[in-house]
């Protein structure tokens, strides 16, 4: 599979007050053409920040402190804002967690769609209007013509997310970043939205980076998965490998905390403790404090991300040791 996007050793730092923290550390991965890559992890593990660094939308107090981002053999992280704007929306589009908060309350849907289309496609006003109607119909919005003239407060969350998807797909991006696109929606709507995204993605051969903490969605929609913990990648594998034989104790714990219908459980297992703050990162493995399998070495030295095979990487001393033995 051709890789269309590559991250090489990307680090992101942020400044809070007068303190600087590294919030994403040495993240490398690639996305193939038409592939869906899942990024999972607890809140605050750096998933969203990593995604925002790709599309050049880091918050004003954060910046890329190392690494390269390569889109179609072109380094984009050092581009000037003016050049980056031609990529934003056109080559990389993004949809966000809260669809209702994604639309500007004072503009109509057509105005907000047109803003995106005008930025990247050379169309006349009437062409933009017709295209907008097509787009809304494609994402399953009834009465598309009328909805175009409505304001965001007149729409439901599911409708808003459909519109955001229509907007994101309007310029046929090569990469769609979906940051927890269904977290804020009803369970019944979630499946519809995910199916819609899947259809559009297949139709346009778009690559998707799907950020989520819902392992069910990962199982259904992704080909490969990256598990992040405290700003680092701890495991990278195909979906089959992750679900059948998770290597990292953190991934194992994540999978165990999914409720199962075929097992009666008194209480749902959860991972004790919380993600270490970037203010006080442990010097050893970042998960050691919460890890049931941790031993001395884990607290002293941070493990590298080691390749188990071509498609499998894990950051854990357990596998370093077994590698040495074998």
């Amino acid at each position: 599979m051709d890789s269309i996007l590559q991250l090489h050793h990307v680090s992101v730092s942020a400044k809070v007050g007068n303190e600087k923290f590294e919030v994403v550390k040495d993240v490398s991965f690639h996305v193939g053409k038409g592939e869906t890559l899942g990024i999972v992890g607890e809140s605050g593990c750096g998933k969203s920040i990593t995604a925002k660094s790709i599309i050049g939308l880091l918050p004003s107090n954060a910046w890329l402190s190392g690494g390269d981002i390569i889109l179609n053999n072109r380094e984009i992280s050092s581009l000037k804002k003016r050049d980056m704007r031609k990529i934003q929306g056109k080559e990389i589009a993004m949809i966000f967690q809260e669809p209702m908060a994604s639309l500007d309350p004072v503009y109509t849907i057509s105005e907000q769609l047109a803003e995106m289309i005008k930025n990247h496609l050379k169309l006349t006003r009437s062409e933009i209007k017709n295209y907008s109607i097509d787009l809304l119909e494609k994402v399953g919005i009834p009465r598309a013509k009328e909805i175009l003239n409505e304001f965001p407060f007149q729409l439901s969350g599911g409708m808003s997310q459909r519109i955001m998807i229509a907007m994101a797909m309007s310029c046929k991006p090569e990469i769609l970043i979906a940051d927890e696109p269904t977290t804020a929606l009803d369970v019944t709507i979630q499946a519809q939205i995910m199916d819609l995204m899947g259809d559009l993605k297949n139709e346009n051969q778009t690559s998707v980076i799907l950020i989520t903490h819902d392992m069910g969605i990962v199982a259904e929609f992704c080909q490969r998965v990256i598990v992040m913990y405290a700003g680092e990648i701890v495991e990278e594998a195909t979906v089959e490998q992750i679900f059948n034989d998770p290597k990292h104790p953190y991934t194992q714990a994540l999978l165990k905390s999914i409720p199962r219908i075929d097992e009666r459980q008194e209480s749902l297992p959860y991972i004790e403790g919380s993600v270490p703050s970037p203010r006080s990162m442990p010097k050893g493995c970042r998960f050691a404090d919460r890890c049931p399998l941790a031993f001395d070495q884990c607290f002293d030295q941070e493990p590298d991300l080691i390749s188990i095979n071509n498609q499998y990487k894990v950051r854990c001393w357990l596998y370093e040791k077994s590698n040495r033995k074998g």
Binding site: G89, S102, D104, E115, M164
Partner: peptide, 20 residues
């Protein structure tokens, strides 16, 4: 969030500041 969304469309920063 709609400010970030507007930027993600490739709209220039000052236009986002004024328009949205």
């Amino acid at each position: 969030q709609y400010i970030t969304v507007a930027k993600s469309k490739g709209t220039s920063e000052w236009l986002v500041v004024l328009r949205h």
